[in-house]
Nucleic acid binder design. Structure first.
Length: 584
RNA sequence: GCGCUCGUGGCGCAGCUGGAUAGCGCGUGUGACUCCGACUCACAAGGCCGCAGGUUCGAAUCCUGUCGGGCGCACCA
């Protein structure tokens, strides 16, 4: 058998469904069941192995159409069930009418062989090579990255990895907001700080809306070191322009450097300024004006009709009218002064992703504080003639950094909010990437700084890595003892009868389906949890079963188990760009 | 006020496209190495799944309402 892209759990579920449908048809043909259209039913993996490997609710779901008691229906179907040549060896009727199917050892053997022979076991092709663009972090280049960016980085990168493993063609992208209002503000802040160096702070105070950070002052000093006082008496706008051109590329390089240290490599760094320069923002605004999705307001601003397009996707911004009633509030696309808002640029950007570059799907990872923007953007995609459902947004809740059980907001060293680099100075990158993927994105995440640095099994990354190192050590010991593994083809899972062994094989079998589910639900955290469960199941097996001292087929089977578990742990950690150490 | 989101043992979380006795980690208590890495494992106690209705053979899961926490409602991004 070829185990390339093998998904054993899915194979078992699909075969169970087909067998049951066939049995139901046979029962109807034989008169054991009345003729009726088969109802929708589910096949699933029961929580408790006592209830079989696969369970179906067909009999219960069919009570109405067959006009019979569920258990009678189940008996008719099971009576007509032919399991010869299938993955299953027997069927039972249980409880209110569940049909429980039990897998034969062939399936277990297949799982073991696939998992210990295929180096990329877990990879499947359900994504069919569809082109997905995952955009994440996209931090403002005006300053350092914060905790939201840290979580978004780990989440987006690992989500992209899951999609890749599930068979999608993934592009990782960073959108650089190097245009618009905040760049203006950045330039102004820099220029004022520069002038302060020569004229003093009293003579040119920094406006309240400007960036206050020390990084701005540092840029200004560097600029002054290069150009001296040449700009002091010159044109302020020219100073702004030149000092921005001086500092912005440095900041962007800083983002690239810091994210690189965090092991994130983007395929595309997309500049917002390129959209403006190419006239793409203007073009999309024109398109919206033509289609009637926008209109020109009295003051000259171009307004976007919210209600019409956003209502389909949920929220629209509301405002109160003079009479106290609520109505949809239109959005400004281009200000009265002719400068487009970020919303206009964002539409052009997503148009570029979906229409110009032709991605099947654009997935954006955003902080939950931007949720109001989701319906707007999806609606806008409809308005420009695309389909809003091709844009998906993963909203991410806040991070609370915890020390001694209490939240910490500020860095002791700088007195400012803790940045991504502060975090990575304190916590291993392995821990950061793992911890940020322990909770699904929709939950707020408490990041335990004390736990993240611990080198013991309390720390889940450590616990998982330890399982990997333990297996490596064991395999070395086998090698030293001259015990060679006979190869996957010789493995027979039927001899692995211990509950801990079977539980481990079941977990191994779930791996490809887990990745597929993580990709489908945009939830890489389930893979983190999966690998913790796998490590737990391995340690349990290790305590219950001897490997070195076992003999014959049992030893072969257990070695295969070790190889398989090592492979899956390594695949998960490598996918998530976390070290899989052989010793520790 | 409107909207999004989260309420599950002392704490932190799974389970949520409806299923059979609600799982896991920490903490608490008791145990397991002359033995492959004890950086590990086992057993035990502990829960009317925020609350109230509804839908049906069956609800932690779906619907409605309600209470509580977080977030958002700019010609900022």
């Amino acid at each position: 058998m070829n185990y390339h892209h093998y998904n054993p759990r899915q194979a078992a579920l699909a075969e169970a469904r087909a067998l049951l449908e066939k049995a139901a048809a046979a029962a109807m043909a034989a008169g054991a069941l009345p003729e009726a259209e088969l109802p929708a039913f589910i096949v699933e993996i029961p929580a408790d192995v006592k209830n079989g490997d696969v369970a179906a609710n067909l009999a219960m779901a069919g009570a109405r159409v067959f006009r019979k008691a569920p258990r009678q229906i189940a008996e008719a179907i099971v009576g007509a069930l032919d399991l010869t040549g299938s993955l299953f060896e027997r069927a039972e009727i249980a409880g209110p009418g569940f049909i429980n199917l039990f897998l034969g050892s062939g399936w277990f053997t297949g799982v073991l062989r696939a998992a210990c022979s295929e180096s990329d076991y877990g990879r499947t092709d359900g994504g069919a090579g569809k082109r997905y663009n995952v955009e994440f972090v996209s931090a403002n280049p005006t300053g350092p990255m914060h905790m939201g960016n840290a979580r978004g980085g780990a989440l987006g990168d690992c989500l992209a990895a899951c999609l890749d493993w599930a068979g999608y063609e993934v592009t990782r992208e960073f959108y650089i907001n190097d245009a618009g209002n905040q760049i203006e503000k950045f330039g102004k802040s820099l220029a004022v700080r520069y002038l302060q160096l020569y004229k003093g702070e009293e003579a040119c105070p920094l406006p309240a809306e400007c960036y206050q950070g020390a990084d701005i002052v540092a840029h200004a000093k560097n600029f002054a070191a290069e150009h001296g006082d040449a700009y002091v008496d010159g044109d302020f706008e020219q100073l702004k322009k030149d000092i921005t051109a001086f500092a912005l590329p440095q900041n962007i390089e800083g983002l690239q450097r810091d994210l690189g240290k965090y092991r994130i490599r983007y395929d595309v760094w997309f500049h917002e300024s390129d959209l403006h320069a190419a006239g793409a923002v203007q073009a999309v605004v024109d398109k919206l004006l033509q289609s009637g999705a926008c209109y020109k307001a009295e003051d000259g601003a171009i307004m976007y009709r919210s209600a019409q397009y956003a209502a389909k996707y949920g929220v629209v911004n509301k405002k109160k009218t003079d009479s106290g009633e609520e109505e949809a509030k239109d959005e400004v696309l281009v200000r009265a002064n002719g400068i487009p808002t970020y919303f206009a640029a964002d539409i052009a950007y997503h148009y570029n992703k979906l229409a110009v570059r032709g991605f099947d799907k654009a997935i954006d990872v955003w902080g939950a504080d931007h949720h109001g923007h989701v319906a707007r953007m999806k609606g806008a995609m409809d308005a420009v003639g695309l389909d809003g459902s091709r844009l998906d947004v993963v909203l991410m809740q806040m991070v609370n950094l915890m020390r001694d059980g209490k939240p910490v907001r500020m860095s002791k060293r700088t007195g400012k909010a803790i940045t991504l680099t502060d975090l990575l100075d304190e916590v291993p990158i392995d821990s950061a990437r793992f911890f940020f993927n322990m909770r699904e994105s929709s939950s707020t995440l408490d990041f335990d700084l004390d736990l993240a640095v611990r080198s013991d099994s309390e720390n889940p990354v450590y616990y998982v890595q330890y399982a990997h190192a333990r297996i490596c050590s064991l395999l070395k010991k086998l090698d030293a003892a001259g015990i060679a593994f006979a190869g996957p083809e010789a493995v027979d899972a039927a001899v692995l009868t211990d509950a801990s062994e079977q539980a481990l094989i079941r977990l191994l079998a779930a791996f490809p389906a887990e990745i597929a589910a993580a990709a489908e639900r945009y939830d890489p955290a389930r893979i983190t949890r999966f690998v913790i469960d796998l490590a737990t199941a391995f340690h349990r097996f290790y305590n219950a079963c001897r490997i070195l001292e076992a003999e014959g087929a049992v030893r072969e089977g257990r070695i295969a188990l070790c190889l398989a578990v090592r492979g899956v742990i390594r695949n998960v950690l490598t996918m998530f760009k976390i070290e899989a150490p052989e010793t520790m």
